[in-house]
């Protein structure tokens, strides 16, 4: 009962925040609503018993990504952008795409029947073992290769940004 209540509360926060991100005119306000939306997602992680993902979601997305977005927004002059029309010529195509994806999701939900709306029951950790340990075990044994590939990708991004910054000066 409480679980379901909190699930819908966090879902509302995440989705409502998301809608406000794209409708605010002021870029800083958008970034802040993005924080709210991400906090809603973090709450859902907590509800599923994934405490590690909850903390990492906040540290990385809010403490890292949104912070840098804010940094850029404050450095770039966005006053003009705020006064521009918010909807441009492509809105019809975008609307069509959203409609198609929506129909697709609706179809699968309809086919899934009543089970589609049931919350997944979290897999409980073994005695004396937390979410962090489980995640580490899986990440560094079964999924080691994808994990390393992802780190390599990040490394490439770091080097790329350094190279780009060097070229300017």
């Amino acid at each position: 009962m409480w679980n379901a209540l909190f699930f819908y509360l966090f879902a509302l926060i995440a989705l409502g925040g998301g809608v406000l991100v794209i409708t605010r005119r002021n870029a800083v306000h958008s970034a802040l609503w993005l924080v709210v939306s991400l906090l809603g997602v973090a709450g859902e992680f907590l509800l599923l018993g994934a405490e590690f993902l909850f903390a990492v979601q906040i540290i990385l997305y809010i403490g890292g990504v949104v912070l840098l977005i804010l940094f850029v927004i404050m450095l770039v002059n966005l006053d003009q952008a705020a006064r521009m029309r918010q909807f441009n010529r492509q809105w019809a195509i975008a609307g069509l795409c959203a409609l198609v994806v929506g129909a697709e999701i609706a179809y699968f939900v309809w086919r899934g029947g009543p089970q589609a709306f049931q919350l997944a029951t979290p897999v409980s950790a073994g005695p004396g073992e937390g979410n962090v340990e489980q995640l580490a075990d899986v990440l560094f044994s079964r999924y080691l290769l994808p994990f390393e590939i992802a780190s390599l990708l990040l490394l490439v991004a770091v080097i790329g940004s350094v190279v780009m910054a060097k070229k300017r000066s």
């Binding site: 405490e51 903390a55 906040i58 540290i59 809010i62 403490g63 937390g130 979410n131």
Partner: peptide
């Protein structure tokens, strides 16, 4: 909580 330290870091990040 079992991720206490991470939550403190998260709070300072926010």
């Amino acid at each position: 909580v079992n991720v206490g330290l991470l939550v403190i870091v998260a709070m300072s990040a926010v």
